[in-house]
Amino acid sequence: MARLGHWLRLAVFLGMAAVLATPSQEAAAGVNLPKLEKGKGDACVEDTETMRRHHMSMLKHQRDKTMRHGIRTTKHSLKGCVECHAGSKTGSVASTKEDFCMACHAYAGVKLDCWDCHATKPAPKTPGPVGKAPRPDASPLLAATVNGASQ
């Protein structure tokens, strides 16, 4: 009897696994792979395979370095991603499901909350308050030196 129970349980388990596995196979067969627009420039900061697998850990690593320590290297910065990959139609990486980030993330069903806070569009190129070239006297270190010496 115990043996029979054991086999029954195994059968139920296999049956459930089969039922659960079926829809995902269908989905994989029925949905087109995301089409990604080519980014600006010649090449990404890493090769495509590395980017696909590891972009999230690079971003997280960079995020903590920039946020906590003020390290502002640009190679793995989110701002850099946005500058190259903003869509030609929307000018954004995440405003529609065709845009670079959302295309894959919608396909894979992975929610991301970068864009709750970060801008999805690159900074406007026009000379505004953001892109403005600094004045030499705008540097606190220089202002300090000049003022300090004048006293």
Binding site: R72, V82, C117, H118, A119, K121, V130, A138, P140, L141
Partner: peptide, 25 residues
């Protein structure tokens, strides 16, 4: 793009850290 901010978090003056880091006031 240099000042990310979003719903549900607390925020305050940063001394414009993005500017200070490139030696602006």
């Amino acid at each position: 793009p240099e000042v990310p901010r979003g719903k549900g978090c607390v925020e305050s003056c940063t001394f414009c850290v993005q500017r200070v880091d490139r030696e602006e006031l």
